[in-house]
């Protein structure tokens, strides 16, 4: 199991991470935004200041040298210093992490419960409601995330006053956090819920039409048993994969949500860091996101492996 399944995957993951870091590094180099403009706040600066900054951040060194410097730092466990905040990247990213994790976790709960729930319901109860739910899902998936954010805030925060308009509730307790992050999580999960609902429905519908489900019915099994033991159990694998990847993809969506709700998590930090050319921070976050993606992928693969006996066999051989 370890040698045949896990080891190659981990190896691939390492290569992916390495390649991503190089690509991100190069891309940031080409992208607009540079530390000098950022540090001088875009206002005229005297040449001495510019020279000092350039020197401090090795801005004049060739790309390769800068990348080597960064890689050797990372290999020594040092992600470097943020140019924007003059702070250890590890500390900086670490301090922004909880908000984003909470946000993604809450959105994930929504995706799993509402998305899969609606999909299940639609799959099992064909009819008018199912049709309108799926139409709703199609439309929901098309609404831009910030439009949802604005709509949610103007209705639930301003009109009804149920939720705060901004902030992560980090300094408050658990309930405070929930209250602060509810709307952001809903906005973040919105399209994903719709997507997962549709995938769930499609996958279960496909499964329901399978001969073995008909065979199970023909044996007089109660409907609930058929659904649970055959339809859901078998249709679950693609749902798990899609849900997993959708949740991993949420990290990218957090950028917009965090700005819209003034949450200051990883996503918002990434946007700021990109425009300031703060490459150690961009690198760290990009890598984090890639790692999350790879881990999710690995996780769903493992789960898939566990769920589908045919794959287990394939590995054994």
């Amino acid at each position: 199991m370890f040698r045949d399944f896990l080891l190659p995957k981990v190896g691939m993951a390492a290569i992916t991470i390495f390649a991503t870091s190089a690509v991100v590094f190069g891309a940031l180099y080409l992208a607009p935004g540079d530390p000098v403009t950022f540090l001088t706040k875009g206002r005229p600066a005297d040449p001495a200041t510019i020279a000092a900054i350039t020197q401090q951040y090795h801005l004049n060194d060739p790309l390769i040298t800068r990348y080597q410097l960064w890689v050797s730092g990372v290999l020594h466990g040092d992600l470097g210093q943020s140019i924007m905040f003059r702070q250890d990247v590890t500390t900086l990213v670490g301090s922004r992490m909880p908000t984003t994790l909470w946000l993604v976790a809450m959105a994930s709960v929504l995706i799993v419960t509402v998305g899969i729930g609606v999909g299940l319901f639609s799959a099992l109860r064909p009819g008018k409601l199912d049709d309108s739910l799926m139409l709703g899902a199609t439309l929901a998936a098309a609404v831009p995330i910030f439009v949802i954010a604005i709509a949610l805030v103007s209705f639930f925060s301003i009109r009804l006053g149920w939720f705060p308009t901004f902030g992560s509730g980090e300094s408050g307790g658990f309930l405070d956090r929930l209250k602060h992050l509810t709307l952001p999580a809903v906005a973040l999960a919105f399209a994903a819920v719709a997507f997962v609902a549709r995938i769930t429905r499609a996958s279960l519908r496909e499964e329901m039409d399978k001969e073995h489900v008909r065979a199970a019915r023909s044996r007089g099994l109660a409907s609930s048993d058929v659904v649970r033991r055959h339809v859901v159990r078998n249709g679950f694998a693609p749902i798990v994969t899609v849900t997993g990847l959708t949740i991993a993809g949420l990290f990218v969506g957090t950028a917009i949500i965090e700005k819209a709700f003034a949450l200051n998590g990883i996503g918002g930090l990434l946007i700021d860091a990109v425009s300031a050319g703060d490459f150690p921070v961009v690198q760290a976050i990009a890598l984090l996101m890639v790692i999350v993606f790879i881990l999710t992928n690995l996780g769903t693969d493992l789960l898939q492996h566990y769920l589908d006996p045919r794959q287990r066999r394939a590995v054994k051989e």
């Binding site: 604005i150 805030v153 705060p164 308009t165 901004f166 819209a260 709700f261």
Partner: peptide
Amino acid sequence: DEAAITAASVAGD
């Protein structure tokens, strides 16, 4: 975010 600060002001947050 302009929309966020507008909302926070209007709501009194």
